[in-house]
């Protein structure tokens, strides 16, 4: 199973990024092979609006079934939910530690956005 973690760097030792839409990038970790890859999010990091939606698309297109991040907004939630991605919230730590926490079942699943959007509506 593939897990996406919002990350501030390119490897498992990097800190998790508490933001989702404007995360610097994503570590895509495969729990079966224990291999990982990095997806850059620079375009959304700088986008004027709709960053959450496009970041959700990165996660979905990478084939991740689980997302580990700090905060999730309403439109990103809608997009991820439409593709049945499970969203787990973590406190700031390293990517590696957050994956370990997930393996131990310590991360809390969210069934709604935990922060409000930046552009009205929803």
């Amino acid at each position: 199973m593939k897990i996406a973690v919002t990350a501030t760097g390119h490897d498992l030792e990097s800190s998790t990024d508490p933001r989702f839409g404007r995360a610097q990038g994503f570590i895509i970790y495969d729990s079966e092979t224990e291999e990982f890859s990095y997806v850059d999010n620079n375009q959304n990091y700088q986008s004027v609006q709709g960053a959450g939606i496009q970041s959700a698309k990165h996660v979905i297109d990478a084939g991740a079934e689980i997302l580990i991040t700090g905060n999730i907004g309403p439109k990103a939630y809608t997009a991820l939910n439409s593709a049945n991605v499970t969203i787990l919230l973590c406190r700031e730590s390293t990517v590696k530690d957050s994956i370990e926490s997930w393996k131990k079942g310590e991360l809390e699943e969210t069934s709604q956005a935990n922060v409000s959007g930046h552009w009205g509506g929803m």
């Binding site: 709709g50 939606i53 496009q54 959700a56 698309k57 439409s82 929803m122």
Partner: peptide
Amino acid sequence: QYNALAVLKGKAVIFPEL
């Protein structure tokens, strides 16, 4: 140009408020 549309799981989805 406003990220109001995204193709998710093979179908376009609109976020009208954007």
